[in-house]
């Protein structure tokens, strides 16, 4: 527990000092406010002759706006999470920083848990900023208030998927001495995974990206049972973080 506490403190300090957390908060703030802003002000910038076509393409309904948020988070948001986590273990391993730590009476797995917890906290905070800013901007720019319950459920489902991304990216980061390879592996994995829901049936219901679709529908006001996806994603998160522990415990430095 002592190792975990010491590593966690270091990770949190590093997230702030290296500007990782502030930058992530700004990116997610932008993702949160961009959809309501875009739907509110873009039509005013469109030339009058294109207005009719444009309004058919971009209807400023709550469903469309919240779908745009979901799309941004599931694409740019996930990419940002991968970028910020791909070097978490590999960079420290590649530079030899872990040597001086693991020659002490520490637990290697506590480093992995500390990285996972600190990254998860950063990601949850960033997602919260995105959802809260979305809600506030939507409420301020459009006549009706956004449905809070749908947004909260959407936030929870997105959060779980984001933790799954963090877990897999940390795992891939333990496999390489370069963050670039870890990023490529994570990127390819999630790109492949994102096609699964389109196969329908069990893939849509059980695969982790199915959660994002469910979140989108829930935020749009539909009732969706996503418990299967929740269970699979939570289990996957745990499995990858445990695998990361196994890899780092066996790693020769």
């Amino acid at each position: 527990m002592k190792s975990l506490r010491v590593f966690l403190k270091k990770e949190m300090k590093e997230a702030i000092r290296s500007w990782r957390l502030p930058v992530m908060l700004i990116v997610f703030l932008f993702l949160g406010i961009s959809s309501p802003l875009l739907f509110k002000f873009l039509p005013a910038l469109v030339p009058p002759e294109l207005k009719a076509t444009f309004e058919q393409l971009m209807k400023p309904t709550y469903e469309e706006i919240v779908s745009s948020l979901a799309k941004n988070l599931s694409q740019i948001g996930i990419l940002v999470i991968i970028l910020f986590n791909m070097g978490s273990v590999s960079e420290e391993r590649g530079k030899g920083q872990l040597e001086l730590l693991f020659a002490r009476p520490t637990s290697r797995s506590s480093l992995i848990w500390a990285k996972f917890l600190s990254s998860s906290l950063s990601v949850l905070l960033s997602l919260a900023v995105a959802f809260v800013s979305f809600g506030l901007y939507y409420g301020a720019l459009f006549p009706q208030a956004p449905p809070v319950q749908g947004l909260v459920l959407g936030f929870l489902l997105f959060s779980l998927f984001a933790l799954f991304v963090v877990s897999f990216t940390i795992f891939s980061s333990t496999l390489f001495s370069s963050g670039l390879w870890a990023g490529l592996l994570s990127g390819s994995f999630f790109l492949t995974l994102s096609f699964l829901p389109s196969l329908g049936g069990g893939f849509s219901r059980y695969s982790p990206p199915g959660l994002l679709e469910a979140a989108n529908l829930i935020m749009r006001g539909q009732v969706v049972n996503s418990w299967d996806g929740v269970l699979v994603t939570a289990t996957g998160t745990l499995i990858f973080i445990l695998l990361a522990n196994v890899v780092i415990e066996r790693a020769e430095l």
Binding site: G96, E99, L100, T106
Partner: peptide, 19 residues
Amino acid sequence: NQARKDLGYLSEHPSFYGW
């Protein structure tokens, strides 16, 4: 961990957290 309790180690090219 018991064996490393009283150990101090310096690698050939020590690397630290630059921040």
